[in-house]
């Protein structure tokens, strides 16, 4: 399901900024990053690569059906 898990988050917000498609947000309660709009994840892994504590896990499956040109 695209970006699938965040564990060990320190709440620095780098992933929220680094996501081109605005998938992540900081949870106002816990102060930690949450996957808020998973269906918009383009599986580019920038958030994972920018995360200072390597907290983000991404799988290659899209969370919504995928439309392709042919396949």
């Amino acid at each position: 399901m695209a970006i699938s898990k965040i564990s060990g988050c320190i709440g620095c917000g780098t992933c929220v900024q680094s996501c081109p498609t605005d998938v992540l947000r900081l949870d106002p309660k816990s102060g930690k990053a949450i996957i808020k709009y998973v269906e918009d994840c383009q599986i580019c892994h920038l958030c994972r690569m920018y995360c200072p504590v390597d907290a983000i896990v991404i799988t290659p499956e899209k969370s919504i059906p995928v439309i392709v040109s042919w396949g």
Binding site: I10, T14, C51, P52
Partner: peptide, 18 residues
């Protein structure tokens, strides 16, 4: 590949809001 380990470490230990 990814963020520079030194930079990551600095971010990590200066996240005083957490």
């Amino acid at each position: 590949a990814g963020v520079d380990p030194g930079d990551a470490f600095v971010t990590l230990i200066t996240e005083f809001d957490s």
